[in-house]
Computed example of a mutant assay.
Amino acid sequence: MWNGRGLLLLHELRMRGTIAAVAAALNYSASTISHQLRQLEREVGVDLLAPEGRGLRLTSAGEAVARHAQGMLAAQESLHGDLATLAPSAAPLRIAALQTSARTLIPRMLDALPGYRVEVIVTPPEHGLFETEAGAFDLAMAEQYPGHTRPHRAGLDRELLGRDPIRLAVGARSGVRALGEAREAAWVMEPEGTAARAWTVQQCRAAGFEPDVRYEATDLSAHLRLIAAGHAVGLIPGLALAAEEAELRLIDLPGAPRRDVFTAARLSARALPGVRAARAALADAFAALPQT
């Protein structure tokens, strides 16, 4: 039998690229990881790793063994799901949540899951999806903007929660009446590299101008405060407005765009009772939201 921990670490190395990244994700020391991988190499009898610059890369044999490890881990997780239907587990349900869901969907979901220990981390969907595939989360929430599809990861199963309208938000006293009239306004947006930022900039360019982005924040509550105070304008999804009381004026965009809000779970974890229950609770919470 090959070293199960070594197989897990080889799989993590294939996912994350460096021993330092694996060490940070699993809270192991780099020396412990290197020792386990060397032990696995001795057990397998072939070189699994080769030097590359200051780091290591997987050899062709290493890639093959890492794929085997991924299948082994998926089968183990699927078995845990089967066992959990017979004898519920006390293991925590780990969820990567969208920031816009933290004040709306997440509290309703927790109300519907009193028998589970649920751990929620609000994190960008780019990070949440990757870490869910890697095994750090059981379920991730993410969004996809019109015309800006996210990569479909082969190991993840998606379920649509709903479609969320996006509108231009301006202060109550603003004279802006359409997107094209916001060319002179100060804008607030999410950071560079996010799907929301890229989509918003594209909408502005399609309207004939380059936005003057003066404010940047991941927290959409901060966006809403700046907009309500008259210091900025921004494109805001309806989910961000559901639990807010800021005085804003919302302006429809051409084509009435909506973002898709979805959950993603590993194929081997989607049958886990906790994952099924969380998905059902989130879908119910989304359906119960007031129309914004």
Rank of each mutant, 00 (worst) to 15 (best):
L239R: 05
L105S: 00
G128L: 04
G175P: 11
Q36E: 06
L272D: 14
V122M: 01
G62R: 06
L160G: 08
R177K: 08
H68V: 15
A66V: 02
G208A: 10
Q70K: 08
A222V: 07
T104F: 01
A97F: 15
L113G: 14
R173W: 14
Q202K: 01
R270V: 02
R258Y: 09
G193E: 07
V120N: 10
G230H: 15
S29Q: 09
P254E: 05
H35V: 07
A256R: 12
H11W: 14
L129V: 08
V201C: 00
L40N: 06
L139M: 10
L56T: 03
R16P: 15
H35L: 15
Y145C: 02
F262L: 11
R225L: 15
Y145N: 01
L224I: 08
T263A: 09
A102T: 07
A264I: 09
W187T: 04
H148W: 13
V122L: 14
G6F: 12
Q76A: 06
M189I: 11
A69N: 11
A242N: 00
E143Y: 03
W199N: 03
A69W: 07
E184K: 06
G71K: 08
R259F: 04
A265W: 12
T100W: 14
S31V: 15
E216I: 03
L86V: 14
A287W: 13
T263E: 00
H223Q: 05
P237M: 01
G171E: 13
G175K: 08
S34R: 12
A25I: 00
E52G: 00
M141F: 13
A134E: 13
S221M: 04
G193H: 08
R173Q: 14
E131M: 06
E126Q: 00
G171V: 02
L129N: 01
A102E: 14
A217K: 03
R14V: 13
E77S: 09
T149E: 13
R103A: 04
D252Y: 07
E245Y: 14
G55D: 13
Y116R: 00
V122I: 05
D138G: 09
S34A: 05
L282E: 00
F262M: 07
H68E: 00
L73R: 11
L7E: 06
H80Q: 06
A91Q: 10
L220N: 03
A84Y: 02
E216C: 13
E192Y: 10
C204H: 12
G53L: 05
G115Y: 01
A288Q: 14
F209N: 01
D138S: 01
Q144G: 14
H223V: 11
R249L: 06
R177E: 13
P290N: 03
G234S: 01
V201P: 15
G180A: 11
T292D: 05
